[in-house]
Write a protein that binds this DNA or RNA. Structure first.
Lengths: 331, 331
DNA sequence: CTGAAAGCGCTTACAG
DNA sequence: CTGAAAGCGCTTACAG
């Protein structure tokens, strides 16, 4: 490995001068900087992030902590977050959190992460408290938990209220729903917003027409088979997110149930596949890409700046995007 | 930060003994190990990967290098690769390679990566040679380039030949194709295999019915608009991969062209959305998850083991998976 | 079986 | 403006 010592030798200066020159320290003469840069280039020198990290006590790595990396939702988060982190001189490390909330905090510290983005926190997770105790900066992404911290979240209300008015106008009277898990803030908040909005417009949501499940395709598929398979099913199926709705849409295809002829289906997130001509899912949209970038900016600013600053919360608004999966109520 | 020194103090031993005890060194007495472990637990000590890396000259971070992180293909690669790396005690760092092949090798070294997986290498890239010069272990994923190195690849022949026979049996005489980029081994190899297989079964592929583009949705959408929009278009459209085929399928929907009534569409990869009831894309399948895991195993074994060992190439076979997007030729 | 010493590659006061 | 020194948190020969 080529180190700053090698560069120093070639440039005829001391090793600390190499460090200062390459970091563009103001008190290094232009001539020396020039000499050092040339030597570095000649040797193909690449400063070691490991050496720097040990010396400064800080790295430029940010962890994205998720439980289920194969949930497709995150694939739409990773690219913009990675991109924004790169722009800010940081790297993205993926970390999956096993079910046991055991040594994960220690692991994050061990890895030498500068900070982490928590994307799948459950409300009962002890991880946020652990991180706070250990002084590891973090930001909540999409979901929040008990401990006060920076957060990027979605405010469902505007989109959900518009949605409710639209389906009421389309004549729907009874809805079914596949909601998210009870132990996630997102699941709970959307469910609450949706129930309130439906009630407001006089659409009923009977307990027997509601199921809960994870935010994934299979949950939607299974839930739809259960809810739509029986006679007298509601004319409207509301889903916890787009992946759930895509699962439900496919279940409808499997059951040969016409959408939106017999049932209207609604998602939440507006992921790219929802916009496909083949899909045209009606959904509640927000700017997921901007949200991912914002999380990157928040964690970097927290890592670099004042750790004691008050927690910031950035909320993204939602809009209702009607497409082909919602139609007039058949009854 | 809690360090081994703190643990040493509490346990009443020297700092190196802490290191040895926690690494389960055989010559440390059971009693000492016990004492040290308790002290470590009491303090919530997490050994610093940064300190270890500097000391051993090695990290446990593996980089996944891609140009286009928002290509959905990679989202199906990342989860299993990350999982397998985790199983082997390594982490996954995402690295995007900007167009300029400039300082990327230096960057990878700088980051302190133990090794990298190259997933979007073009045949004209200088990166592999650079990495080899610098002694950075790497494995090719899905694509290869000039420099000899470990590789996991797909052998298209079996799947493509079966496909050709199937479409010939279905009466197709003329095909159109949206192939991948010329500067990727994968694009070239699939195109070659496909042309040979079509010729074998007597299906023509006229130059005016062939376009090339990136391995993404938009390429398929655009290509299909171009190829299917005109009169007398072939009855069969072969795509470079599933994302391209999904784009083509959506273009067909946009153009109100019946699939497979008027045109049959074929992909390559068998990504999960291809199996959706709503999609049912006929495609050439291989085990992408196993392939991703294999890449993880190869790079870890290269990093840990003999760097001089001969390059290994693991090829994954393909099968033809007929679904709903292929039908009899209408003509 | 355990400790003292050295070293990994940087950065950063401290002198001069 | 630049060098010598110290130190970040580990691991690993070297003694004993």
């Amino acid at each position: 490995m080529i180190t700053s010592k090698d560069v120093a030798r070639l440039a005829g200066v001391s090793q600390p001068t190499v460090s200062r020159a390459l970091n563009d320290h103001p008190k290094v003469s232009a001539a020396t900087k020039q000499k050092v840069r040339e030597a570095a280039r000649a040797l193909g020198y690449a400063p070691s992030a490991v050496g720097r990290a040990l010396s400064t006590g800080r790295t430029t790595r940010v962890g994205l902590v998720v439980t289920d990396l194969d949930n497709q939702f995150y694939s739409y988060v990773i690219a913009p977050m990675h991109d924004e982190l790169g722009r800010l001189g940081h790297e993205l490390v993926l970390v999956t959190e096993a079910d046991e909330t055991g040594p994960i905090a220690e692991r994050l510290i061990s890895l030498g992460l500068a900070g982490v983005v928590l994307a799948t926190t459950t409300v009962d997770s002890i991880l946020p408290a652990r991180l706070q105790d250990r002084g590891m900066p973090f930001v909540y992404f999409n979901r929040v938990a008990g401990v006060e911290a920076d957060a990027v979240v979605v405010d469902p209300s505007a989109g959900v209220e518009a949605l409710a008015r639209a389906v009421a106008d389309a004549g729907h009277k009874r809805a079914a729903a596949i909601f998210g898990p009870h132990n996630t803030s997102t699941g709970e908040e959307r469910e609450r917003a949706m129930r309130a909005a439906l009630e407001e417009v006089g659409i009923s949501l009977s307990q027997r027409d509601v199921v809960h499940g994870p935010f994934d395709f299979e949950s939607g598929r299974r839930g739809a088979h259960e809810l739509l398979g029986r006679d007298g099913a509601p004319s409207l199926l509301i889903c916890a997110n787009d992946l759930v709705a895509l699962g439900a849409l496919n279940a409808a295809a499997e059951l040969d149930i016409d959408v939106p002829g017999r049932v209207s289906i609604i998602g939440f997130d507006d992921l790219p596949p929802s916009r496909w001509a083949l899909v045209q899912l009606s959904t509640v949209a927000y700017d997921l890409e901007a949200m991912s970038r914002e999380a990157a900016r928040l964690i970097v600013s927290r890592v670099q700046g004042d750790r004691g600053a008050p927690a910031r919360r950035v909320a993204f608004g939602t809009t209702w995007v009607p497409r082909a999966t919602v139609g007039p109520s058949p009854r």
